[in-house]
Design a protein around this nucleic acid. Structure first.
Length: 291
DNA sequence: TCCTATGTTGTATG
DNA sequence: ACATACAACATAGG
């Protein structure tokens, strides 16, 4: 099974976190951030989990008891690592699969072997030379475990990767027509068709398409479907090349850099950006530019 | 003190 | 049954 990783599986012995203090901070996980965090743990590949430490009462273990996961992982090698959208899957010698989701505030880190857990470090995998850390203050994240060599059903049923050739403009059009009464903003956040797109990516894509986020999906033209597809692919690709690879941020000519600032201006028109709540999520758009 | 937060899900409503 | 809307989850920071 080929891995969906833009950069290949180039893990080495080095710690990819080294010299990247800013990435230890808090950015919220969408497609590229998830890929970045998945990559962080790659330095643990091929190494045995000596011991697992958990905060057993936290919500991230609501699907499986923490104790079960502790016992399942102990003594086994981390041998597989993949991401699709916001979901991650780590394999252990055919013994089972660890599924991770970062929720709203999750992050992953690599610390030294004697690292002491901080308040929100709910899940620590101890290896001989390092500790793999799952941190999540708000506990909207999730840890799953599926025993056995076969890929978990929930993983197999995930929507196709947005950078896979099977993701086409036709699929976008069909989904928009099927849910024609939803705003296009709400639609882009649907992980069943657009895995990995989150709030900032949705706004970025619509801004590049010059489509107002309020537009009902059923009112979009054929041209709009084509543009949507193209910008989805473009934003995913370039987010992975910036955020995904380095843990940094996209360039100043992205909406990303302006969307949260009061008085932020559209990089294309220079006009003030507007923020409104659409479908329960704060949405940023550029009046006059998006129609 | 009150408001916000880049996500998902269970439940209510149409 | 099906699609859509929204409160709830838990914590930190402005």
């Amino acid at each position: 099974m080929p891995q969906q990783c833009l950069f290949g599986e180039k893990w080495a012995n080095k710690n990819p976190c080294a010299g990247r203090a800013s990435a230890q901070g808090s950015f919220m996980p969408e497609l590229a951030e998830v890929e970045f965090f998945r990559w962080q743990w790659s330095c643990g590949m091929g190494h045995i989990i000596l011991r697992v430490e958990t905060h057993r009462q936290t919500r991230i273990f609501r699907e499986r008891p923490a104790r079960l996961i502790e016992e399942a992982l102990r003594g086994h090698r981390l041998t597989d690592s993949r991401a699709r959208g916001k979901e991650m899957l780590f394999g252990f010698e055919g013994v089972g699969w660890l599924g991770l989701h970062l929720g709203m505030s999750g992050s992953m880190h690599v610390m030294d072997e004697s690292y002491a857990a901080q308040a929100h470090d709910h899940f620590l995998l101890r290896q001989e030379e390092r500790t793999l850390v799952f941190r999540d203050p708000r506990q909207f994240g999730r840890v799953r475990w599926t025993a056995g060599a076969a890929l978990p059903v929930w993983w197999i049923n995930l929507a196709p990767d947005l950078l896979d050739e099977s993701f086409t403009a036709r699929l976008v059009a069909e989904f928009c027509r099927r849910h024609g009464r939803l705003t296009v903003k709400t639609l882009l956040l649907d992980q069943r068709r657009f895995p990995g797109i989150g709030n900032w990516m949705a706004d970025e894509i619509l801004w590049r398409c010059r489509i107002r986020p309020h537009r009902l999906a059923g009112t979009l033209s054929r041209t709009a479907f084509t543009r949507l597809h193209a910008e989805i692919v473009w934003v995913c690709t370039h987010a992975l090349l910036t955020i995904g690879e380095t843990g940094g941020e996209p360039p100043a000519d992205w909406l990303f850099q302006h969307r949260w600032k009061d008085g932020g201006r559209c990089p294309r028109t220079g006009r003030l950006l507007r923020r409104e709540e659409i479908g329960g999520r704060t949405t940023c758009w550029s009046p006059g530019w998006q129609r």
